[in-house]
Design a protein around this nucleic acid. Structure first.
Lengths: 146, 146
DNA sequence: GTCTTTCTTTATAATCTTTATAAATAGTGT
DNA sequence: ACACTATTTATAAAGATTATAAAGAAAGAC
């Protein structure tokens, strides 16, 4: 199924006139297969084996291209570096403040919030972002055991 | 009324054993009076006149102290630098993707989301974050006029 | 298949934000 | 006013991201 996602992504790139290079292919493939919301550097390191000469700039450039086309979302938390998430279906993130783990979860409709916000602020609202913060199961258990 | 907020904030600092220096006073005062969600550099520049010798590190250090005490929230969006928001009542942000303007708006309860997330992921959820993105009134009008 | 054009990659340096360090300075309670 | 300790300052360092220019590779035309 993730192969289908990858193929769709590649088609979508072709449709917008973006060239498909081996590096782009590999970055997309890694993102689709990754459940871990990697940083640019994670991706760079992960592909070092396959592309020993690849530049960090290439990773950043292509992540920007993917973001502009809408294939990838950039997540910015408190920590220093952005994380990147392949856009599949709408989901939100639960983030552990102790170990940094990120877990996806679904929630039906926050459209109402968009409508209210639009009404109150006069904005034309396109999308929104939401996360919940706390301690994941492992970390809460560790804390309870002192 | 913002004087009251400032006094409360200073009291709250004293209560936690944090010393009140002229720099801290000024940074808090600026944050309370500012509706613009400034960056650390904005604050630094704004106080240059009053404190010609103040170091950037002082601004960062104190913003961290304020954040740890809970007086200030750090907002990280896609752009390079964090913004800082004096915590008053719970509110959310609408962010213009064209001009960067940030407008506050209130929304009753997203507690339900926290509960669901907690149930689905096993997290102990402490808090959440939400923003809506779009075009502010000025920018949408400009776009319609071609 | 080859050519040509244009986009992309690479390597490197530069920029910008944020943090670390150590010495000098200033709050706070007594 | 004194002493203790936190804070500020100045500076340097770290880390992430972007800019630049030359070399290399996609994609379509022939």
């Amino acid at each position: 199924m993730s192969e289908m996602q990858l193929r769709d992504a590649l088609d979508s790139l072709k449709g917008t006139g973006v060239r498909i290079t081996p590096q782009r292919h590999a970055i997309l493939e890694f993102l689709v297969g990754s459940m871990s919301h990697p940083t640019a550097d994670d991706i760079y390191k992960a592909l070092e084996g396959k592309f020993p000469n690849m530049s960090v700039a290439t990773v950043y450039n292509n992540l920007r291209v993917f973001r502009e086309v809408g294939l990838v979302k950039e997540l910015t938390y408190g920590d220093s570096s952005s994380r990147f998430d392949f856009v599949t279906t709408d989901h939100y993130h639960a983030i552990c403040q102790d170990c940094g783990k990120i877990v996806d979860f679904h929630y039906p409709g926050l459209d109402e919030v968009e409508h209210l916000a639009s009404h109150v602020t006069g904005f034309k609202v396109n999308n929104h972002r939401m996360e919940v913060y706390g301690s994941c199961q492992d970390c809460s258990e560790k804390k309870e055991a002192h």
